Amino acid sequence: MLNPRIKLRHLQAFLEVAKRRSFARAADSLAITQPGISKAIRELEESVAAPLFERTPQGVALTQAGLTLLRHAGPALRALEEGVGAVSAAQGSGEWLRVGALSTVESQLLPRAILRWQVSLDAPDSGVKVVTGASAYLLSQLRAGELDLVVGRMTEAREIRDLTFEHLYYEPLLLVVRGGHPLAGIAPLPAERLSELAWVLPPPQTTLRQRVDSFCVRHGLGLPGRRLETLSLPVSRRYTLDSDALWVAPREAVADDLAAGLLAELALPLEEQGGSVGFCRNASLQPSLGLEAFCEALREAAAAY
């Protein structure tokens, strides 16, 4: 039986501090005072008889007891939200999904799946909130019950662990430059020629960057000093079109520009098969009918690849 001293506000405060890694930011997010959120955490720690956070130079971090509670509290509150949502749905209102998207699916797969899902629904006010970012962040949000699923290339993501992953298709990273680039017509292209260029590539500590690092090791290359590190597709695209830079890009993100001749693929493969693109779900959460329908929309959209 749940300790009667533990209230919903305690768990909401705990999850927000765990998410923000700061009492002050959590208080701002919940629109309460910092002493108020500190009091809620202190009462929760007294109820579970264990410290949940510890101070660090970067803010606060979860203790082992805090990590244990997080694994259960996030899904529990999410299940409660789903229950309330199910009651609302029964009264004729629509459904909203929270989807984490990696850059590998932002351009084509995800928009197509969202359109398929919305067309298949009866409720006109159903929608999708898309959250972008690195895989480690998005998967942590999924584990905490803040997202319904995460879509993208996650073959090498260590953070998957206890989450369920469904493979949809393989997609490689490509080396692309603007149309008319001096290196675009050279085949085969010696790897050392890449050192002449600025690079646009994923940030460190991402699964895509690991593939870039492996490529550099295989060809004895060092990363150039002049580079742009970002997961933003619009920033990467504009920078590449306006310069002689080399862009390490997911095939999906550049397919239309390659077909139009705005970008050109270099004659040097970064990887052959590519990584596994699919979606992750939190097995501890009961999926709604809307989420199941969205997963089917992803499968149908992926069938075109």
Score class of each variant (00 low, 15 high):
194 L>Y: 07
10 H>I: 11
137 Y>C: 09
17 V>F: 01
9 R>G: 05
286 Q>M: 11
249 A>E: 02
83 G>F: 00
304 A>F: 06
70 L>H: 08
86 A>F: 03
69 L>W: 09
274 G>C: 04
159 E>G: 03
113 A>C: 10
85 G>T: 03
19 K>G: 12
72 H>R: 14
200 V>P: 05
160 I>T: 10
206 T>Q: 07
195 S>P: 10
71 R>I: 00
24 A>V: 12
120 S>H: 04
211 R>G: 02
230 T>W: 00
213 D>E: 15
299 R>T: 04
164 T>A: 13
63 T>Y: 10
202 P>Y: 00
199 W>N: 07
256 D>F: 01
133 G>S: 12
105 V>Y: 02
173 L>M: 14
76 A>T: 14
104 T>G: 12
257 D>S: 13
155 T>S: 15
126 S>I: 08
302 A>C: 03
171 E>N: 05
293 A>N: 07
107 S>W: 03
204 P>A: 11
213 D>W: 00
169 Y>G: 02
269 P>F: 02
116 R>G: 09
43 E>F: 03
102 L>I: 07
140 S>G: 15
289 L>T: 11
83 G>E: 12
166 E>M: 01
90 A>T: 08
297 A>I: 00
73 A>N: 02
151 V>H: 04
19 K>N: 11
279 F>W: 06
282 N>H: 07
234 P>K: 06
47 S>C: 12
218 R>L: 15
241 L>W: 01
201 L>C: 09
199 W>C: 11
76 A>S: 13
230 T>V: 07
293 A>H: 07
164 T>C: 05
147 L>C: 09
106 E>N: 02
286 Q>V: 07
160 I>A: 11
194 L>K: 10
68 T>L: 15
278 G>H: 02
212 V>N: 00
195 S>G: 15
111 P>R: 11
60 V>Q: 04
294 F>T: 10
132 T>R: 13
234 P>V: 11
180 G>D: 12
109 L>W: 02
148 D>H: 15
217 V>L: 14
198 A>T: 13
95 E>V: 15
218 R>G: 06
4 P>H: 08
38 S>Q: 11
148 D>R: 05
147 L>D: 10
37 I>Q: 08
120 S>C: 03
32 I>G: 06
41 I>R: 02
303 A>Q: 12
252 E>N: 05
119 V>C: 12
215 F>K: 10
174 L>Q: 10
162 D>C: 02
142 L>Y: 08
239 Y>P: 01
97 L>M: 05
188 P>A: 01
105 V>R: 03
287 P>T: 04
265 E>N: 01
66 G>T: 12
277 V>D: 01
103 S>K: 06
111 P>N: 11
148 D>C: 07
2 L>S: 14
202 P>I: 10
5 R>A: 15
124 P>Y: 03
30 L>Y: 09
165 F>I: 07
270 L>Y: 02
237 R>T: 13
14 F>G: 08
125 D>H: 07
136 A>T: 15
67 L>M: 14
77 L>W: 02
289 L>W: 03
46 E>S: 15
182 P>C: 11
251 R>G: 06
246 L>K: 04
178 R>A: 14
136 A>Y: 05
112 R>Y: 04
82 E>K: 09
68 T>D: 13
294 F>R: 08
145 G>T: 12
231 L>C: 09
285 L>N: 01
130 V>R: 07
303 A>I: 03
169 Y>D: 01
154 M>V: 05
225 G>W: 06
133 G>W: 00
70 L>D: 09
110 L>G: 05
155 T>V: 06
295 C>H: 05
61 A>C: 12
187 A>Q: 13
